[in-house]
């Protein structure tokens, strides 16, 4: 097996498995940059995956054909935003501990999604969806030598959307007044308040954006990777996205890079058996690498990762 073949095996797989992580990690960036910890990404992704599977099936029944998964993605964004409102209300308005509220959100999502699946389908999981988001060769670009086969052949459009969105989020956060306000609320809410920025409103918007993104991430996972929804569909991807966000130092492009890297580690743990040299490395090292690297990054051993200043603190007007 020559080097090119190995790359062709690994890189598309990495981009493929990174897409849901990128979406969700970008959501995390919004929320945490505004000062709200979002441990609930896992639960939001779970609701997204459930919605993705459910509405693809409904779309098929309603005769939407190949458009059904795309329709489900849009519904999943809305469901994610609505579901994240619970976290927003509890942690912003009622000043609940943000971590606790996120944990509760994860519990609720796990319970609610399976409860609804059992109610609707009378089974532990949804049926397999017929209209999945399939791999395609991008016209023209896939004909470019070297780059074409690696990055533009048998790829998913959702992956390109994810990467493009990372740049859009970067632009929003760092080049628009809205982004500046959002970040200022996460660094020093009192100063922001003094300047006339509505801290509560900004944080609500940020948390709902994170819900929309995570919902999208979950739905992309369900419609492109899993193909249905069961209790095991989302098991840890949300936390891995959280890790990607931190490893990417709360920066959209960093988060994207980290998600791609984690995707690579995941794809290597699956395809590694086919690659000479990697066969000898036990799978477990690849499986734990995202988490270990994140811990090392936080400890300052792989570049210092500092959270936004006001993260985790509810804002109370007039409190010193």
């Amino acid at each position: 097996m020559d080097f090119m073949q190995i790359l062709q095996l690994v890189i598309p797989a990495a981009i493929f498995s990174a897409a849901p992580l990128i979406f969700t990690a970008l959501g995390g960036v919004f929320s945490e940059r505004s000062g709200v910890v979002n441990i609930g990404l896992e639960g939001l992704m779970l609701m997204g995956a459930f919605t993705g599977a459910l509405f693809t099936i409904l779309g098929e029944q309603w005769g939407m054909g190949a458009a059904s998964p795309w329709f489900s993605l849009i519904v999943a964004i809305i469901v994610g935003m609505l579901f994240s409102l619970l976290h927003a209300v509890a942690s912003i308005s009622f000043k609940a501990d943000q971590v606790v509220s996120g944990v509760a959100l994860n519990f609720l999502a796990a319970g609610l999604a399976i409860f609804l699946v059992k109610k609707i389908f009378d089974a532990g999981q949804t049926p397999i969806i017929q209209e999945r988001i399939y791999k395609t060769d991008v016209p023209l670009l896939s004909d470019i030598p070297f780059i074409g086969p690696l990055f533009f052949s048998s790829a998913y459009y959702t992956s390109y959307i994810a990467i493009a969105l990372a740049f859009v989020v970067w632009w929003i956060l760092f080049k628009t007044p809205f982004g500046l306000r959002l970040r200022s609320v996460g660094e020093h809410p009192m100063a922001a308040d003094t300047m006339g920025i509505n801290v509560t409103k900004m944080r609500y918007v940020a948390v709902m954006l994170s819900g929309g993104f995570a919902g999208l991430g979950g739905a992309v996972y369900a419609t492109s990777i899993a193909g249905n929804f069961s209790h095991a569909t989302i098991s840890g991807q949300g936390f891995m996205a959280l890790a990607a966000m931190i490893f990417g130092k709360w920066h959209p492009l960093g988060a994207m890079g980290a998600a791609l890297f984690f995707g690579l580690a995941q794809s290597l743990s699956i395809t590694g058996q086919q690659i000479p040299g990697l066969k000898e490395i036990p799978e477990v090292y690849l499986l734990i690498s995202p988490y270990v690297l994140t811990i090392l990054a936080l400890a300052g051993l792989v570049g210092r990762a500092d959270a936004p200043k006001a993260i985790g603190q509810p804002y109370e007007k007039g409190k010193r």
Binding site: L86, A96, A104, L105, F107, L108, G111, F115, K118
Partner: peptide, 14 residues
């Protein structure tokens, strides 16, 4: 479905 209990527990935490 037994998951109702998980929902109740989540709401209690909230």
């Amino acid at each position: 479905p037994t998951q109702l209990v998980e929902i109740v527990i989540a709401m209690i935490i909230f």
